[in-house]
Design a binder for these strands. Structure first.
Length: 300
DNA sequence: CATTTATCCTGTAAGC
DNA sequence: TGCTTACAGGATAAAT
């Protein structure tokens, strides 16, 4: 379940239900699930066997479980890194119950309690054994801090955003600038700040950018409090339950329905092979300003 | 170099 | 009722 609030809901579930438990064995049922683990599926399964899950951490949409060798009583050094992709789930299951169709990797525990099933219909998600990755896996060193982290430097991010010529929405979705925001919360934050998605980052005043990040923090926090957003059974917590933030969405997925602020019908536009939802009144399209090159071209 | 696009998958819903 | 097409919450290598 893709964006930050949904991933955080999963992280909390893992902290509660698998932290402190020892992995007895892992079964890789679909090789694509561990495709980014270079040494291969067998190495992956061997690496996690016998490890104690020391906790559950998250940055943006990435999750990792720090691992400590059983019996060593040592600090965790390695980690199991997880990205849920578009349709990934981490579900608890009773060991004697059959596996559903899209279970890609299963982890069994030495206590013989509920197992953990990485379930992923579209197989965009993946798992990696991250050596030395307990604090922060090297594989995600390019992922910027997310807005809910204490180290998130809003002023610095705003400065970078305002130096960009691409659209403000593309910047919000760029995980190397700020992580955790996906298509839903980008649209919702832009609506809250009354900014059209196609405005160049460089066109935002500092106060407008500050408004935008206030909107980002608010919508992420509210969605998290509601247990995340889900439109269908694909986006659920470790116990298979859906969050209920979808009922609080102002524009995302609501084409033609009234803007909660002004009543105008929500508009949908094409954006990078997907959709951007906005209010045509609250978020007017930027007026197209000819680039320097276009001006030169037309004047001759 | 910054920015955009094409691609990896499966399933569902809408349109004909 | 089929069959085809568009679309879905993401990340990334390749292209521009």
């Amino acid at each position: 379940m893709p964006e930050l609030p949904e991933v955080e809901v999963v992280r909390r579930g893992l902290e509660r239900h698998v932290a402190g438990r020892t992995i007895r064995a892992a079964q890789v049922l679909h090789p694509r699930a561990v495709r980014r683990h270079q040494p291969g599926a067998e190495d992956f399964a061997a690496a996690v066997r016998g490890q104690v899950i020391a906790g559950a951490r998250r940055r943006g949409k990435y999750l990792w479980l720090p691992l400590a060798s059983a019996g060593a009583a040592g600090v965790a050094e390695d980690a199991l890194l997880v990205h849920l992709g578009m349709s990934g789930q981490l579900l608890l299951g009773e060991p004697d119950r059959p596996l559903s169709a899209h279970v890609r990797v299963r982890f069994e525990f030495t206590d013989l309690g509920p197992d953990l099933r990485f379930t992923d219909q579209r197989t965009f998600g993946h798992l990696v054994y991250a050596r030395g990755g307990a604090v922060l896996p090297a594989l995600i060193s390019h992922i910027a801090p997310d807005p809910l982290e204490p180290t998130f430097d809003e002023a610095a991010v705003i400065a970078k955003l305002r130096a960009r010529h691409g659209t403000v929405k593309a910047a919000l979705l760029d995980q190397s600038l700020v992580s955790g925001i996906g298509n839903i919360y980008a649209d919702e934050a832009l609506w809250r700040a009354k900014i059209h998605w196609a405005r160049p980052g460089s066109s935002l005043t500092r106060p407008a950018a500050a408004r935008l990040f206030a909107g980002v923090r608010e919508v992420l926090a509210e969605a998290l409090a509601a247990g995340g957003t889900s439109f269908d059974s694909l986006y659920v917590n470790v116990n298979g339950e859906s969050g209920y933030f979808s009922r609080s969405l102002a524009v995302y997925g609501r084409e033609g329905k009234p803007c909660p602020r002004c009543g105008a019908p929500v508009r949908r536009e094409k954006f990078a092979n997907r959709s951007a939802y906005s209010c045509p009144v609250c978020q007017p399209r930027p007026r197209v300003r000819a680039s320097v090159r276009d001006l030169r071209h037309h004047s001759t």
